[in-house]
Design a protein around this nucleic acid. Structure first.
Lengths: 300, 300
DNA sequence: AAAATGTTTTTTCACGATAAAAGACATTAT
DNA sequence: ATAATGTCTTTTATCGTGAAAAAACATTTT
């Protein structure tokens, strides 16, 4: 086996959802942009849609014949990229205990366990190394540095430095910058979520990421923007395993975001700084309490 | 062909240098640590040394028979790792003009041109991507972002943020920390270089890196420490192609370093801050003047 | 018994090969 | 003439493979 056709399968599933909305599909290039794939893949998708009787396809005409049924969709897990599969397996191992700092990581073993080639695992580890959790020994194995309190402190130190700077840059943006509209709509989403927090509290993490990314982008600095990938990755997994008081935590965070947004809109740098610090402080606290480790590192 | 034996060849060359110093070689494990390779490689080296009549090898006894001649050494270029070869080729293309921003990078073409497999090129590009000069389009090619003025400004912005913080942390280190001794010996090296600057000015870049890495390490933050890799990489190539007023620039930098060191030793945070800022300002200026680009970005 | 050497096994590194996906070119339809 | 479709070519993603290098195990020497 060489390459899975998950790109096709994922695009096909997304394509099925388009059938509900229209009587006939647009042109091939248009579908390509819509689904984010090449025309080659679009044609493979159309071919199958015709085969399964979903559409009638003849050159430019692509008439919808019937609505897609649940069994028309490819199974969810066949649409994942290899990188996603490897990351999930790796993180499960890492968080499911038994992952002591200093432990060595074996490419071959990982590859066998996940059922993929070594090349993919190697590439994953190289990409993953920028998160600061693993390190390579020159022509030898990888070493796990562990998701420790020290790691969390180092991460949040940078995060705070970057976000304070980005927030200040954001507040200084001209009136006519499109980010203000983005901020307004994020504010609306926050208000909506605040009202429905009891039932939709788990929708927060996604909103959280969009909000912070918007702020970081104001820095106009690729290193700051890219660093948010590290934070996002950590918080993504953190949300999955630390469910304690999730509702309460998110409720507090939404309110902090709203205060933060208000401060940004005021363009008062002192207020922005205060609101930003307050939110980051509680975000750090949440992260730290979820790391079980008795002893605090020496450097406070 | 599968894997070159550059590890062996490089270790062999370094091993030859040991022959000058002793009558007989130490044990295999000891040689392994000394050369930074496994015992397997040590034994391959010893086998060849015996074959070429350099030593007499019988179990524990490894008697030196003669001094190594120049032709005993493997050629320099056979001791490079593939990663080094690829990086050099890539940077040469990137700096040798014709590398416009937005240009796309072709893995296969690069691999063919350098004469290596595609896997190695892919892995190199993934590793290299953290420098912020290239970016991957999801299941498609890489895009060159270009070594532009904007890049240099973003890089130096982070550098200044990190170094000011590290320098402050450094100055706050306790009296008995071993870094003060390191700083002292670096100071000596700087004084020595200052005296011989006329003839040894090109020894500065290596000293520069060691000095700044020492300071960054005081942050005790892996993200700050790792970020110096980006700076080091840029400066490494920058030094190679911008030779204008190299001697003068380095002379100034050495003096700035000495002032910076004095400030650190005084532990006066205000002085540290001032000396650090002054040096970083001229470093930024040097880097910026070497980038030919008329228009300055809008965000000043 | 501790440390070295001798031997075998495992892992890493790098390649060529192959299917999926993208992209380029030629042709046809509006 | 522009934009779509049809066809062919190139590139990317992934695997299995084999040599280099590391690591583990067994045996001998001090």
């Amino acid at each position: 086996m060489s390459k899975s056709n998950n790109v096709y399968k994922d695009a096909y599933n997304r394509g099925l959802r388009l059938l509900d909305e229209t009587r006939s599909l647009p042109s091939e290039p248009e579908l390509g942009t819509l689904l984010g794939v090449s025309r080659t893949t679009v044609r493979t998708i159309l071919a199958r849609m015709e085969e399964t009787g979903l559409i009638d396809w003849n050159k430019r005409s692509k008439t919808v014949l019937r609505e897609p049924r649940p069994d028309d969709f490819f199974p969810e897990d066949e649409t994942d990229t290899l990188a996603e599969i490897i990351e999930r397996s790796f993180m499960r191992r890492l968080l499911a205990g038994g992952a002591e700092a200093g432990m060595q990581i074996n490419e071959l073993e990982l590859a066998r366990e996940i059922g993929v080639g070594t090349t993919s695992v190697r590439e994953f580890l190289i990409r993953f190394s920028r998160f600061g959790l693993i390190e390579k020994r020159r022509n030898s194995h990888w070493v796990l540095k562990g998701f420790t309190r020290a790691f969390a402190l180092e991460l949040t130190e940078i995060r705070e430095m970057f976000e304070l700077r980005s927030a200040a840059a954001f507040a200084a943006l001209p009136e006519d910058s499109p980010v203000w509209a983005d901020l307004d709509s994020l504010e609306d989403e926050h208000r909506l979520l605040a009202r429905e927090i009891a039932v939709r509290f788990n929708a927060f993490s996604e909103l959280d990421e969009r909000f912070h990314r918007l702020i970081h982008r104001a820095s106009h600095n690729r290193f700051i923007v890219d660093f948010y990938d590290v934070i996002a990755m950590i918080f993504h997994y953190h949300y999955q395993w630390n469910k304690a008081q999730e509702r309460e935590r998110n409720e507090v965070a939404v309110q902090e975001h709203l205060a933060y947004i208000a401060a940004l809109k005021s363009r008062d740098l002192a207020k922005v700084d205060a609101a930003c610090r307050k939110h980051l402080k509680s975000a750090r606290h949440t992260l730290l309490t979820s790391i079980p480790e008795g002893r605090q590192p020496l450097r406070a």
